[in-house]
Simulated scan of single mutants.
Amino acid sequence: MKILIVCLGNICRSPLAHGILQHLADERGLDWKIDSAGIGGWHVGNPPDHRAIAVAKRHGIDISKQRAKQLHHRHLEEFDHILAMDRDNLRHLLAYAKTSEQRARIQLFLGGQEVPDPYYDGRLFDVVYQLVEKRCRELLAIWGK
């Protein structure tokens, strides 16, 4: 199973989800490849936001070695599931997709709900962590069988 998680800059939400889902999959011995990317390239090569690193670390997950990358067309071919953190990311992904097969792999991470962007309101990092962890556990129950 190969899963790509996408947000705007790949420094807050998607690195958290990437780290949490990989951690949980590894705990269960699943051979899953999890990665993350951003719609924009502003932070390419940078580590996750220090607040994302801190909230993950408080929960025993190290995301400090991740580096931001920008979405590339090869991602749409390489991954089985491509999960967008919000509707704007979803629109970009669907527009970026070249085939109906690629579009079929794209969905919102939370289903019908968006993951709020904590970048401008640091108080949201704990909320985002809780939302993302809960959904990661749900995805494991759905896809981990």
Score class of each variant (00 low, 15 high):
64 S>L: 04
57 K>I: 00
73 H>M: 04
36 S>L: 03
37 A>S: 08
96 Y>V: 01
69 K>S: 14
40 G>I: 02
58 R>M: 14
17 A>D: 07
54 A>R: 14
15 P>K: 08
18 H>G: 00
92 H>W: 08
11 I>D: 04
124 L>Q: 15
17 A>Q: 07
45 G>N: 05
10 N>Q: 07
112 G>Y: 00
90 L>W: 01
31 D>I: 00
63 I>T: 10
41 G>I: 08
113 Q>M: 07
81 H>F: 12
124 L>E: 13
39 I>N: 02
64 S>Q: 04
119 Y>R: 07
123 R>T: 15
103 R>H: 03
45 G>V: 08
56 A>C: 14
28 R>M: 09
29 G>T: 10
74 R>H: 12
115 V>I: 14
113 Q>E: 15
66 Q>M: 14
10 N>V: 06
87 R>A: 08
27 E>W: 00
27 E>L: 12
122 G>P: 06
114 E>H: 03
14 S>M: 09
26 D>I: 01
126 D>K: 07
51 R>G: 00
121 D>M: 01
53 I>F: 07
66 Q>P: 03
51 R>T: 04
106 I>A: 11
95 A>H: 11
75 H>R: 05
14 S>A: 06
56 A>F: 04
67 R>Q: 11
76 L>D: 13
62 D>M: 07
43 H>N: 13
42 W>T: 03
67 R>M: 07
22 Q>A: 14
36 S>W: 06
22 Q>I: 00
117 D>F: 01
21 L>D: 08
17 A>P: 12
41 G>V: 04
113 Q>N: 10
116 P>T: 08
67 R>F: 10
119 Y>V: 02
13 R>V: 13
49 D>Y: 03
39 I>D: 02
58 R>D: 15
